[in-house]
Every structure is written in C-alpha cells, then in structure tokens.
C-alpha cells in the first residue's frame, strides 16, 4: 500500500497520522492568530498619527511580507518537503514582480 506506513498495521498508522494532522492543524491556527495580529498592527500603525509615513510605509510592507510568508509556508504547505519546484516557480514570479514594479515606478513619468 502507498500509505507510507512502517508498522504494517493500518489502524496504528491511522492513529499516528491523525495525531500528526491534528498537531499540524494546531500550528495552522497559531499562524492564523499571528496573521490577524499582523493585520491589526498594520491598520493601527496607519491610524496612529505620531508615525511619519517614512516609518509607517516600510513598516506595513514588512508586516505584509511576513504575513504572506505565513500564508505560503503554513497555509499552502510550502514548509513541507517536495516543494522545491513550487518554490522555484513562486520566487521566479516574485523576481519578475520586483523588476516590473521597480521599472514602472522609475520609468513612468506622467
């Protein structure tokens, strides 16, 4: 069978897998709470008048990058093994994304 077992007893393996899945789900909920917290901090940072935009803009961009990393590595399972090629595709896209944004922001003049 292809259920990646070691014991040869499907019931024991099922219990083990369920436990592992439940543990992973706990990590997912923790990352969700962190993502909500990052979102709240970003909205508050913008609402708080004492911060100049020279601070708040890079700060909220950093918060967004951290939140997206949680989304990719936990919710989309990129932290699991077997995601080398997906990482290549996504980071390839991100590279082109940075180039495009940099080009448009410097070249568009009107």
């Amino acid at each position: 069978m292809a259920n990646h077992t070691n014991t040869g007893n499907p019931n024991v393996d099922l219990a083990y897998r369920r436990k592992k899945n439940a543990e992973e789900m706990k990590h997912q909920v923790i990352s969700f709470v962190l993502m909500i917290a990052l979102t709240l901090v970003a909205f508050f940072a913008v609402g708080y008048d004492e911060f100049s935009h020279w601070f708040s803009v890079p700060f909220i961009l950093l918060l967004a990058a951290v939140q997206v990393a949680f989304q990719l590595y936990y919710f989309m399972h990129m932290s699991h093994k077997g995601h080398e090629v997906p990482a290549l595709f996504i980071y390839g896209g991100v590279l082109v994304a940075f180039l495009t944004i940099w080009a448009f922001m410097t070249v568009v003049w009107w």
């Binding site: 090629v85 997906p86 595709f89 996504i90 994304a97 495009t100 922001m105």
Partner: peptide
C-alpha cells in the same frame, strides 16, 4: 500540483504588473 504552482507563479507576474501600474 506542479502545474498549479507554475500557474501561481504566472499569477504573481500578472498581479505585479497591475500593482506596478497602480503605484506609478
């Protein structure tokens, strides 16, 4: 699985061009 991640890489580029236009 593989094909879909390739598609998501392409979507990243699509949205990047729209973000770049908006920022400009």
């Amino acid at each position: 699985f593989l094909g879909f991640w390739l598609f998501l890489g392409g979507e990243t580029v699509l949205f990047a061009s729209l973000f770049a236009t908006y920022l400009a």
